[in-house]
Design a protein around this nucleic acid. Structure first.
Lengths: 173, 173
DNA sequence: CCCTGACATGTCAATAGCCACAGGTGAGGT
DNA sequence: ACCTCACCTGTGGCTATTGACATGTCAGGG
């Protein structure tokens, strides 16, 4: 259910093709909701059949850009405002950490170091994204405002995990 | 691939039946890797066929407890130490936040308040779990040590999200 | 004119995960 | 003897997700 609404949400911003959407997932949404292009093209077809989106324009190379219909816009809004949030988290690194006692202290330390590095890197990326937005590099539309809020979450989450991984190393000794 | 290794990891701790494992998922692992019992029973059968686990004992009510074999133990260790970590995060609440500009400020504020409450609650739960372990309520086996580390991540993650939701409310004004 | 690379859309098969339903068993109470 | 509840293991069908494969097009350089 999330993918379809994510697509509607992106299309609410501006008309886009499957290709465009696929790239926006890779760049932006992929961090919280990954989706490959086969899934996207498939879902777009269903959305069109249901009348939630419509072909906006056709371009070269079979390019088909879609836009949301009124029904589609109503659907996303309803999803956002009225449906229950699914707080399920699926985080392999933490699943692994539950079983770290099976490793030697050295292996464990190595893993935690790698994790800390990873989260430092990604956290810094989000932090820079936030800074860029605050410098006005992305304008100040409502959309980028929301994106800024989401990026802050990305920064905080990754920073928290980086600190956790470092804490875990000292806790282990 | 994660479910099978999670099962092997749990069985490395002590022999258990599908029922037991299903409950451990609900209580502990479900927060980072949900799994329903049909999936678990199915995977157990495959693991047994592959010789990674073996029936340890049969009890009343068709209860079948499994234990890991040496091959199984090698497999989890290999997974933990040598395979690449999948950092994919699937977090619907954050996906939603990207589209919050589609809501009215009031709806947005309401959503963020609800999120903050939720994460406060869950974060506090993990914090208490950590405290209980630190009071020695769970002993100090290597397993509970790892669990303590994972619980710390749960606490930090949820606390970070709670603070984020509150920050987002003020940022919105 | 041909080649390459970025653009753009798809199919198909396989696996993973989810939900509803189904069915058998032992312990303890009445 | 009967009933109920907690225990315990499944099946079947659906949707979601992934990875490999397939196809075609436009632009620019050689």
């Amino acid at each position: 259910m999330s993918l379809r609404h994510a697509l509607l949400g992106l299309l609410a911003e501006q008309p886009a093709s499957g290709w465009d959407l696929s790239h926006r997932f890779d760049e932006v949404l992929g961090a919280v909701w990954p989706a490959g292009h086969p899934q996207i093209y498939g879902e777009l077809r269903k959305l069109e059949q249901e009348g939630l989106i419509a072909v906006d324009s056709e371009g070269p190379r079979r390019r088909k850009a879609y836009r949301v219909t009124d029904a589609g816009l109503t659907a996303v809004r309803g999803w956002l405002a009225e449906t229950e949030v699914d707080h399920t988290m699926r985080l392999e690194p933490l699943l692994r950490s539950v079983f770290f006692w099976l490793l030697t202290p050295e292996q464990r330390a190595a893993r935690l170091r790698e994790e800390a590095e990873y989260y430092d890197r990604v956290g810094a990326m989000y932090r820079e994204l936030c800074a860029a937005k605050d410098r006005g590099e992305y304008g100040d539309s409502p959309q980028t405002h929301s994106l800024r809020v989401a990026a802050e979450a990305g920064a905080r989450l990754n920073e928290a995990l980086a600190e956790w991984a470092r804490w875990a190393q000292t806790y282990d000794r």
